[in-house]
Design a protein around this nucleic acid. Structure first.
Lengths: 330, 330
DNA sequence: CTGAAAGCGCTTACAG
DNA sequence: CTGAAAGCGCTTACAG
């Protein structure tokens, strides 16, 4: 039969009384915020232990006018992304002495009357994940001078909000370079993500740059919209095939999907968990997602504490070569 | 050049002054906690809007002696688990009017001097995910009468902490029943997870019960330790093969892995994202992970508000039949 | 329906 | 090195 507990638990005053000191002194030993006699420290610590004292966060926050909390704004579900990202954010935040408050929103379907869930009222700064906030929201925080760091999304023009993301363009370029240089591919279709998504924007650019660098024409007919969606992507590929594109290989693909990578090479982004177990194993680009998270925290903490951060942090990716591109591995 | 903002932002007093009322009245309209004249409400709301007033969370929490925050204790990385779980928890928490504070810990490698990260000092109740807290920690909260709900882990004896999990035993049984009844399998090996892990405990039990129900002997030589780890599992399978177990099929498997499902059926737990794209597509059990999250929140909120919750919530799973078990699909 | 006032549990100049 | 006291910004009986 549990009882209301808040009333029963010790406050700083109880500790002070038991240790025979003032609450100011107790506060000093808790926060190491001022000189305290060694013997006094011991007495206070003993009292805290005996009373199982834990400072109430709300009281500290109110008195110190800080929340010591970081906010993380997320969209619904990010697939394999999620776990490493959160892990990076959480451990970095904790290590820097901050709590982590999480909320999910979506630019496309804003839930609550905007800026209210996470903001100056409950956090010292915010990590904003791609697509969780529109530019109106970002502007709002900007006007307040409230620290925000963007993840996988660059700042709206003029606001100069620091951003942490991944080398998408270079990665796409490397991937296409590989197909062209190592596997002599010349007709390379590109299944791109949403237009308004920055990751896919940069990847498309990398794709084009690689083609151009090799003197190959960019054929708009070879760029289809996959929208990062299974069904849409499948449909797009079908269209590509039916459109009569001059592709012996694609025709072959249509009738004998198994001819990967002999007739057609396939490469992808995001090294998902079972990528290595597909048939054939998929060559992909792996992003340092956990580091993106921790790096974003680092920037945010810096922004909070020094009022400045790096405008853009671009983390390198890694190309994971497997069978699907045509490489023969031991 | 952003400026310190806390000082500039409006407080309840500013709102009260501008609306020509007392702070008590403003508080009443914010929280709808008492009768207020319609006209007064309008005046207050206008003032709030004009001043862009947002109540400071810390002040509310301190004054009301509630945090309106739920805590979620997680272990490092849960794979595909993570995203839907968090999504379920976050949206349910938000819907119930709670903020969500997250922390990761691990029973096996406790970071901080225990109970301190998340607790009565900053949350009204805690969701404890499997393996994030040992029984010592749970006992601690229990003594305090602090509301806790366990996820995918049952209560230590005597504590009676409510638990939300998934029908592991029934799911395993269904899976094995399927192999026996539909595919006439008789020699069924079981690659089990860690001994101290409840999910794997129940699955093992389901495996055994299915065998027994069909009059088949449980051969300990057929139960190997996979530990939910790729390398360890691979090694275990190898051992199983080399141990000379009387398995024509396994021998065959060793030399021609491709004979799945003709010679050997394979089924698994946890319907991972690419399961359907393996060769052959994997028959698995799908758990309602997002619902586990939201259900856990429901129980926790109930526990906080009424001091009682269901001791055990067992959510049903779904068997996803694909090719690897031997079924022929359209 | 409304307000004055106490109080939530800390931190932080200020003074000594 | 230490304490008295003000103050952080709300909520909540209590009184009217």
């Amino acid at each position: 039969m549990p009882m209301p507990l808040a009333e029963h638990s010790a406050t700083i005053e109880d500790v002070a009384r038991r240790a025979g000191v003032s609450t100011a002194t107790v506060s000093r030993v808790i926060n190491q915020s001022g000189p305290v006699d060694a013997a006094t420290i011991t007495r206070v610590q003993t009292a805290m232990r005996e009373l199982k004292y834990i400072p109430r966060t709300a009281a500290r926050n109110l008195a110190s006018r800080k929340t010591n909390t970081l906010g993380l704004l997320l969209t619904d579900i990010q697939g394999d992304f999620f776990a490493p990202m959160l892990s990076g954010v959480e451990s970095a935040a904790r290590a820097a002495g901050y709590d982590l408050l999480i909320a999910t929103t979506n630019v496309r379907a804003p839930r609550a009357p905007f800026p209210s869930i996470l903001g100056p009222q409950n956090t010292d700064g915010l990590l904003v994940f791609i697509n969780s906030l529109g530019s109106a929201g970002l502007e709002h925080y900007h006007e307040l001078g409230f620290p925000v760091v963007l993840i996988h999304q660059s700042s709206p023009e003029g606001l100069n909000i620091p951003c942490v993301t991944v080398e998408n363009k270079a990665a796409a370029k490397k991937l296409i370079d590989h197909l062209i240089e190592v596997h002599q591919r010349r007709h390379i279709a590109f299944l791109r993500g949403p237009e308004d998504q920055q990751d896919s924007h940069w990847r498309a650019l990398g794709y084009k740059q690689s083609l151009e660098a090799h003197g190959l024409a960019v054929d708009p007919g070879l760029i289809a919209s996959g929208e990062f969606d299974r069904a849409i992507a499948a449909h797009a590929v079908k269209q590509l095939l039916e459109s009569g594109v001059e592709f012996g290989v694609l025709d072959a693909l249509q009738h004998a999907v198994k001819r990967v990578p002999e007739e057609i090479s396939v490469v992808g982004f995001d090294d998902q968990r079972l990528s290595a177990y597909l048939t054939p194993p998929l060559t992909t680009v792996r992003a340092p997602t956990e580091r993106v998270g921790s790096e974003a925290v680092r920037q945010l903490v810096q922004l909070i504490q020094t009022r400045q951060a790096d405008p853009l942090t671009l983390l390198p990716t890694e190309m994971i070569i497997r069978r699907s591109c045509g490489c023969v591995l031991p």
